[in-house]
Amino acid sequence: MSKTGNAIEISNLNKWYGDYQALKNIDLNVAHGERIVVCGPSGSGKSTLIRCVNSLEEHDSGRIVVDGIEMIDNASINAIRSEVGMVFQQFNLFPHLTILQNLTLGPMKARGMSKADAEARAMKYLESVRIPDQAHKKPSELSGGQQQRVAIARSLCMEPKIMLFDEPTSALDPEMISEVLDVIVDLAEEGMTMIVVTHEMGFARRAADRMIFMDHGEVIETGTPTEFFEVPKTERCKQFLSQILQH
């Protein structure tokens, strides 16, 4: 496997749902350590795009290379998934398991780690998301913000090189958004490569190296947060920003 300069290379990516084209000729390169925020109106394809990166959605044409591994078959998909962590809008914790079991399941079953090692690792990441004391509770006993932080820790337990966040704060009560964003900012500062789909523009200013604006399955505009927020180039992007920044 040849190491390329980029963590993620996407070229000419297309995706259809029946007759509807969800992604149109997407080209995107993400450097190692780069933090990218993807925004755009709902239905613009931003979630579909990041779900293609770890093949939760199958793309119809185009090339995806993640950490030097080209996505061509099941073996490469598995290899890619072991490099890529993902955090979902709805947390998707395993409700029948304790927090600790949520975190150790992957390392023990997929990586064959011993229980003791997996638990030590789990506690380390629970501490880094600041909830070690909840380890033996069930997900339903935690607040939304705590659940999402557990979900982040669960991903980190697989020690991924790249993290994908699919609207990680959209399902949260307003007062819990910042505790989750703080954890993501911590990760960003540690140099984790990440793609974050979010409407949190304050977070984007704080953490993003690059902004990507999508609409109708296309990348409309891309640039540094400063360029993006101060001098948006396209009309659609201006319109979107004015709508989202009104509140």
Binding site: N78, R81, M86, N92, H96, L105, K109, A110, R154, S155
Partner: peptide, 27 residues
């Protein structure tokens, strides 16, 4: 059982059999 459970299991590296055994069937 919501689709998100299968997706989460995939992202922590579980294969189909492990996903069924440890995540889906117990629920």
């Amino acid at each position: 059982i919501a689709k998100g459970q299968t997706e989460a299991a995939k992202t922590v590296g579980l294969n189909y059999r492990q996903t069924m055994r440890y995540v889906i069937l117990p629920q």
